[in-house]
Nucleic acid binder design. Structure first.
Length: 419
RNA sequence: GUGGGUGUAGCUCAACUGGUUAGAGCACCUGUUUGUGGCACAGGAGGCUGUGGGUUCAAGUCCCAUCACUCACCCCA
């Protein structure tokens, strides 16, 4: 490694051809699934006004306080590379008045996001999410559809050992009441809590429920449960959602400690967990955000969605071993036939046959070796002899059989073969 | 931001307690067949041992720093 070599930014990665094939398989599955559920794809800009995230995600969240790539542009405006997509998608929903055209708007995206965190397994500074957002319904039917999409997709992908955790953090005012009660309960234990939980006691007490400290977990066991603070409507909403999931035969585990980190969540929260991912085992997380649209200046509109980490999904998928193969390799021998080789390769491609030929002026042997290596099914060999006689050699590289074909009928001959 | 682990060829890894010219497999290139791939065999190319200091007669090996990668914490997908 030379010392003046320029390397990629920490936490970013190049997706090389061997790997990108796998990405395309996944992306296609996603597009197909979303078509089944009748969601439209949305693509938003890579950067937004910083204010969108301040208001949408929440000023005291980790994302906004320490993870955003922000800068002041030449016009004096603070801009930010998007660290999540619910806020930008909601912004687009409001900006284009999508809610006016339809009572229910169903959107999805596959996109790159940026967060300045220390990379580790399943965590990157530029990473990708597949996400779904539905605006306009507060009813549990849409909650169950959203969850069903995630479950369906992961089933499609053949992922096993994925478990669904479900909770409701209630609507806003009951959550405030719960927060107070939780703090009241925790106060006597405050000095026994882990350092990070002590900090969260002030900033975001709900997150203490999510702690990994074993001693904290002991204390929390006896803490009040949020379900006791639900309003009657919250309870009905949650119960109906559970019934719908039962109808769809979707298995879930109610986890009253499942609290999502971003400010905009209310009521339903859920997470899909894969045990094979190490510490970052959440493959998909989502929930309801009934206040978000008005927080960013739209008319009050309920919404729900999820985001799934593409890289994390990718890690749980088996590697695809299919090496890409091509149909034909045109082998040329000597300088006289170079133009013929190029013209023929071009015609074959126009006939929709994937074709390769030598660019390095290599020997016939090297060219055939290369043809074999890249998995060509046929080789067409043209040398001086063939050039003179207007006959080319067509070699089947699977069985080694070789035949002479008149050059003027080579295209129709090749297109008639089965690949 | 904090802590642990690891840095030797493109990749995966060797090199006994410091000791001559740092090796192997895979991959790559060329030949064995001067116009025919795979298999086999033969050969070749490819390294400032991450970088910079230090200890020593002698450092890939020990010490310090630094950078990178990696795992974990915080938090999240």
């Amino acid at each position: 490694m030379s010392k003046n070599q320029i390397r990629s930014i920490k936490g970013t990665q190049d997706i090389l051809p061997a790997e990108s094939l796998k990405w395309r398989v996944l992306e296609k599955k996603i597009h197909d699934t979303m078509e089944l559920f009748n969601y439209g794809e949305i693509r938003t800009p890579a950067f937004e006004k910083t204010e969108l995230f301040d208001r949408g995600v929440g000023l005291q969240t980790d994302i906004v306080t320490k993870e955003m790539y922000s800068w002041i542009d030449q016009g004096g405006e603070s801009l930010t590379l998007k660290p999540e997509l619910t806020a930008p998608v909601s912004r687009a929903y409001v900006q284009h008045s999508l809610g006016v055209q339809k009572p229910l708007t169903k959107l999805y995206y596959i996109d790159a996001l940026f967060r300045r965190e220390r990379p580790q397994k399943g965590r990157f500074r530029q990473f990708h999410q597949f996400g779904v957002e539905a605006f306009g319904s507060e009813h549990p039917e849409i909650d169950s559809e959203i969850i069903s999409i995630a479950v369906t997709l992961f089933k499609e992908l053949g992922l096993k050992d994925i478990s669904l955790k479900l909770n409701s953090i209630g609507s806003e005012n009951c959550r405030d009441k719960y927060k107070d009660e939780l703090k009241k309960f925790l106060k006597p234990y405050l000095k026994d809590l882990s350092a990070s939980s002590q900090k969260r006691f002030e900033t975001n007490p709900l997150r203490i429920l999510d702690t990994k400290s074993l001693s904290d977990i002991e204390i929390i066991k006896n803490a009040p449960t949020i379900s006791n603070f639900w309003s009657n409507e919250d309870k009905v909403h949650f119960d109906e959602l559970c019934e719908l999931l039962d109808t769809l035969k979707i298995k879930y585990e109610v986890d009253s400690n499942l609290v999502r980190g971003l400010d905009y969540y209310s009521r339903t929260t859920f997470e899909l967990i894969s045990p094979s991912l190490g510490a970052q085992n959440a493959i998909c997380g989502g929930g309801r955000y009934d206040k978000l649209v008005e927080m960013i200046g739209g008319k009050p509109t309920p919404g729900i969605g999820f985001a799934a980490g593409i890289e994390r999904i990718m890690m749980t998928l088996k590697n695809y071993t299919d090496k890409n193969s091509i149909d034909i390799y045109v082998v040329g021998i000597g300088p006289k036939v170079r133009q013929t080789v190029f013209a023929l390769a071009d015609e074959l491609r126009q006939s929709n046959l994937s074709t390769e030929c030598d660019m390095l002026r290599r020997s016939i042997k090297s060219q055939l070796r290369d043809a074999n290596k890249i998995g060509a099914k046929y080789a067409i060999i043209i040398g001086d002899k063939e050039f003179e006689n207007k006959l080319v050699e067509v070699k089947n590289l699977n069985n080694g059989e070789q035949e002479k074909v008149a050059i003027k009928s080579i295209i129709s001959h090749m297109t008639s073969l089965s690949f």
